[in-house]
Write a protein that binds this DNA or RNA. Structure first.
Lengths: 124, 124
DNA sequence: CGGTATCCTCGGGGATACTG
DNA sequence: CAGTATCCCCGAGGATACCG
C-alpha cells in the first residue's frame, strides 16, 4: 500500500502534485486546516487554538484557503454578526495527507531536528 | 484508520507537525523527494526528470534536504568525479505522505483549479 | 470582533556568469 | 558536470493602526 508513490502518475513531467504542495505552502495553512478538523470555528477561536499567528496573517491565510475552495466562509446575520469558517469537500480531503505528515513527524521529527542542529554546529 | 487525523496529538498547541510542513515548504522540495523515489540520481538526471528548475535552485534545494537529513550526498572518487543523491530513512518515510497528496490531487485538483479560476474572474 | 490598509523585512526563486 | 557567487524581484510574514 505504501509501495509505489508514483504508481503511474507523472510526478515529474507535468507535475500536478505540485498543486497540492503549493496549496499547503503557507506557514499556517496546514495548521488552520487541521484546526478546522472537528467543526466550524470563528476567527477568534482559531487564533486562540493556534497561538502565535498574527491577526492579519490568519485572515490572509483564510482568504487564500477560501479562494482555493478548501474552506468556506459562513456569515450569520445576528445581533452581533458572527462569522465561521469550515472545511469544504476538498479541504476535508486534505486531512488524510496531513494526518500522514503528522504520523511521519512522530517517527522522524527528532532525527531531523538532530540533523539540523548538527549542521548548525559544524559548517553552517 | 483514516478516521481522526488529530487522534490525540496536539496539532495546535505546541504544533510539531509544522516541522513537516516547513520541510516541504520549498517549491521543489517535494518534487525532488518524489524524483528520488526509485533510487539515487545525479544532479543532471534530476534536472532532466523534473524540468523547469534552474541549476542554482536545485542545488539549493538539495543543500536544504541534506541539511535536514532527508537526502544523502554520495561522492565517488572516480575518473570523472561523480555525485549522487539518495533518500535517507526519514526522507524515504516522507514518500507515503507525498503519495497521499498525490492521491488527493487526482480527486480534488480540478475542483481547486476551478475555484481559483472562479475567484480570478469575479473579484480577483 | 472581524477585516482591511500601510509599511517593513527577509528569504526563496530565478537568470546569469564564473570556478573546480 | 557540479557548485558557488552576484544581483534582482516578488510575495509571505509580521507589527501597527484604523474602519465596519
Amino acid at each position: 500500500m505504501s509501495g509505489d508513490p508514483t504508481h503511474g502518475h507523472d510526478f515529474i513531467a507535468d507535475c500536478r502534485t505540485r498543486i497540492a504542495f503549493d496549496l499547503l505552502s503557507g506557514t499556517w495553512t496546514g495548521v488552520v486546516l487541521a484546526a478546522l478538523h472537528d467543526g466550524p470555528l470563528r476567527p477568534g477561536e482559531l487564533r486562540d487554538r493556534i497561538g502565535g499567528v498574527s491577526h492579519k496573517v490568519l485572515t490572509g491565510t483564510l482568504r487564500r484557503l477560501e479562494r482555493d475552495g478548501l474552506v468556506a466562509r459562513r456569515r450569520y446575520a445576528e445581533a452581533p454578526p458572527r462569522v465561521e469558517y469550515e472545511l469544504t469537500g476538498p479541504g476535508r480531503g486534505l486531512l488524510e495527507p496531513i494526518a500522514a505528515l503528522a504520523r511521519w513527524t512522530e517517527v522522524h521529527a527528532d532525527a531531523v531536528l538532530a540533523a539540523q542542529e548538527r549542521a548548525e554546529l559544524s559548517g553552517r
